[in-house]
């Protein structure tokens, strides 16, 4: 129980940003910078991407990476060393899925190291990628949620984390006081 008390939203934010930063640096050689922004409003005229990966085990939840279609195309081009204009939607979906998978994986190892004595705190499911206009992703039930907006080459990425300790029922707000 003492370990849980050390988990704060600020610490989780730091881990989340560091995980994303490392992945962006290694995979696409881009620097990300957190910005003071509450949320990102996606242009309803243009499509955007949301990649999600679920966590299950001692802790459960999911992490979401959202960005504009244009930025997703640029990121994929860098990942695959291809001209962004030549990419198919499937290429972009796969790249965004891989991106959230790597960010989730890095977050898992940092979280486990810091808050679970190095033992695996949760496992990851398979990534899903949603592509379209005028849609939003929500967490069902009550779970602690953290959102960070990042600047990547003058475009925004929204990074969301939903997390709760297993064994707490939906409707319980107990975890929110922990995180």
């Amino acid at each position: 129980m003492a370990i849980q008390k050390e988990i704060t939203s600020e610490k989780l934010k730091v881990i989340l940003v560091e995980s994303a930063s490392e992945v962006f640096q290694k995979m696409v050689m881009l620097t990300i910078t957190p910005v003071q922004k509450e949320s990102v409003s996606w242009d309803s005229e243009n499509k955007h991407y949301s990649a999600v990966i679920g966590f299950s085990g001692g802790w459960k939840g999911f992490v979401t990476v959202e960005c504009s279609g244009n930025l997703a195309q640029q990121i994929t081009g860098k990942m695959l060393y291809m001209d962004p204009a030549q990419l198919a939607v499937e290429d972009i979906r796969d790249a965004m899925g891989e991106m959230v998978n790597m960010i989730g994986g890095k977050f898992k190892s940092c979280f486990s190291e810091q808050f679970n004595d190095g033992a695996e705190a949760f496992r990851m499911s398979i990534p899903t990628v949603t592509y379209g206009k005028e849609f939003r992703i929500f967490a069902a039930g009550d779970s602690a949620q953290i959102m960070v907006v990042l600047d990547v080459e003058n475009s925004f990425i929204s990074l969301d984390l939903t997390l709760k300790q297993s064994g707490t029922n939906f409707g319980s707000r107990a975890v929110q006081s922990v995180v």
């Binding site: 949301s50 990649a51 999600v52 679920g54 966590f55 299950s56 085990g57 459960k60 939840g61 999911f62 979401t64 979906r93 796969d94 965004m96 899925g97 891989e98 998978n101 496992r123 499911s125 398979i126 990534p127 899903t128 990628v129 949603t130 592509y131 379209g132 206009k133 005028e134 849609f135 939003r136 992703i137 929500f138 967490a139 069902a140 039930g141 779970s143 939903t162 709760k164 297993s166």
Partner: peptide
């Protein structure tokens, strides 16, 4: 057999969702 994550819910007008997997 497996443990479940927290459900996520997508709501909107014009979107499609794909699992990125060989499963």
């Amino acid at each position: 057999v497996f443990e479940q994550s927290v459900p996520s819910v997508i709501e909107g007008m014009d979107y499609e969702t794909h699992a990125v997997t060989d499963a």
